[in-house]
Design a protein around this nucleic acid. Sequence first.
DNA 1: ATCGTAAAGGTCAAAGAAAGTCAGTAGGCA
DNA 2: TGCCTACTGACTTTCTTTGACCTTTACGAT
Lengths: 155, 155
Amino acid sequence: MAAVSDSIESFILSLLGEEGVAELRRNELAHYFGCAPSQINYVLSTRFTLERGYLIRSKRGGGGYIVIERVPVSAAELQALVTEQIADRLSRAQAMAMIGNLMESEIVTCREAAIMAAALDKYPMATRETQDFLRAQLMRAMITALLRDVDSRSQ
Amino acid sequence: MAAVSDSIESFILSLLGEEGVAELRRNELAHYFGCAPSQINYVLSTRFTLERGYLIRSKRGGGGYIVIERVPVSAAELQALVTEQIADRLSRAQAMAMIGNLMESEIVTCREAAIMAAALDKYPMATRETQDFLRAQLMRAMITALLRDVDSRSQ
DNA sequence: ATCGTAAAGGTCAAAGAAAGTCAGTAGGCA
DNA sequence: TGCCTACTGACTTTCTTTGACCTTTACGAT
């Protein structure tokens, strides 16, 4: 029954076009489709997820915007890493192993690996549970960042 | 779209050019962009901060002016950064400004900056206090890691 | 020298303009 | 019935823009 969300989805898909990049104003789009602005967020968070190969950037306030980007194929492996290998918890050992792999396969440089390792090392407060949870989040966030410009290697 | 502040920012950036120095009249610029004079101050204080590597000098009264100067951060100054600028708490905005500066000064690459920014972005659980505390720790850890092999640049 | 005034720039708080979050409602369908 | 997906609205957070009021400076008139 042609839910509004479906229309919004295909509209965004058409915006993406060849480029694989689309910029939009949330309120504008919501008004165009006669729906609540938050429905745009709903569509983005259900149909344009990382699992499906999309990255979202946005800015609030005056002149705000939302940018949707299709993850390039070259980054597919990284994406799989994020969505498959990292669960909601990640031990220190697991993390270090992953970083080792990333470096081995020349996906990250030595310096990049060092930065990541530093961030994933250990956290003072909290229980082990919390630490592993946080570590998973950080790892996901960092790899996702890499995803964002995987082509721009060797600076 | 393209908030006025953004236009003002890129205008100033173009003024800075190679020299890294720009002089301007507040009222003149405000008139040129059709905005309130104080918006110039807004742009300066949000985009041309010391954290981002800019120095502002100005004079009031007749013949007044504003001078913006880009000040590069040397790798050696990183150490001071760790010990001075990063207290036991670090806000998201501060962190992002610092990262921008590190990148501008070519101490970190674009990708490295992206990784750091991702790690420092936000931590959903926790209170604001805790987040800022954790962020300070992570920033310190990552910069220390960079210092450890600051020579091994360009991998 | 002193004072007055106009011509800068500075500050701050309030209002405005986006987008984000989340919990809850409603409609289909197994 | 109970679950899943679609949808909504109230509330939050972040960023921008504006205006009223303040401070500093140069310059000319006394």
